[in-house]
Design a protein around this nucleic acid. Structure first.
Lengths: 118, 118
DNA sequence: TCCATATTTAACATACTTGTTAAATACAAA
DNA sequence: TTTGTATTTAACAAGTATGTTAAATATGGA
């Protein structure tokens, strides 16, 4: 699977996003990561494998623990991809703004033409 | 499925990303969108449904055609989510930079201390 | 009305995902 | 070496995704 697909696919699961959010606070072991979830340890372990394969986390063995840490760098390509589309939605916003400006009641009387609250 | 999962899931397929890229150029019919792919029309039609459900495209009926157009606004939440992690990878970059600065050969002789090409 | 064009829906096959439980593995400490 | 703790792998079930072909639907025009 291509890298981008793998990244987006890894992010398409709420458990995995929650794990990443937890790791943004700091490194943690598998057990610690699993604790908040109503899910077996093997299930969490598999989510961690998906995140590892996607390059979003790193695991180092420490005695019988695996310390997981965020590797947000793995998000960069996905961020860049989405970023390409930002101008489209911002353009959309500009169009809406322009429309509202056109259709808003015109200032009347001795107006200075400045914006005012609706 | 939650919105974010739906968005990332929709983006996790190269055909769908290619369709979005095509639509960034301009609106197109289903047939036009399908043309570059070695895939049946029903398969493309289903990809378009996934994109529609994720709010990434819009379809208007025009006679017997369905004109599809990009709705990049649907990417905003995903962009925001990823953005939260940007500081982590940029921090990482800063750390690398600091490391390189520490380990780089010190300027010697009558140096002005300015950066130079490696 | 009848036909051609554009697209979707139905029915199906295959593969992937994700969860479960039970067993295996790895290490630390008694 | 035996035991306890942490984690992964194996085997399985259920649900979801994605592609196929054939049939259905919708519209415009002869």
């Amino acid at each position: 699977m291509d890298t981008l697909s793998q990244t987006f696919s890894a992010l398409a699961d709420p458990t995995r996003r929650a794990i990443l959010a937890r790791l943004a606070i700091g490194a943690a072991t598998v057990g610690e990561l699993a604790e908040p979830f109503d899910m077996s340890l093997p299930a969490v372990s598999r989510h961690l494998r998906v995140l590892t394969d996607a390059g979003l986390i790193e695991r180092h063995t420490e005695a019988q623990w695996r310390r997981c840490e965020l590797r947000a760098e793995g998000l960069r390509a996905a961020a860049d991809w989405i970023e390409e589309y930002r101008r489209f939605w911002e353009q959309q916003f500009d169009r809406l703004e322009a429309y509202l400006k056109r259709t808003a009641p015109q200032p009347k009387g001795k107006s200075d033409g400045r914006k005012r609250r609706s």
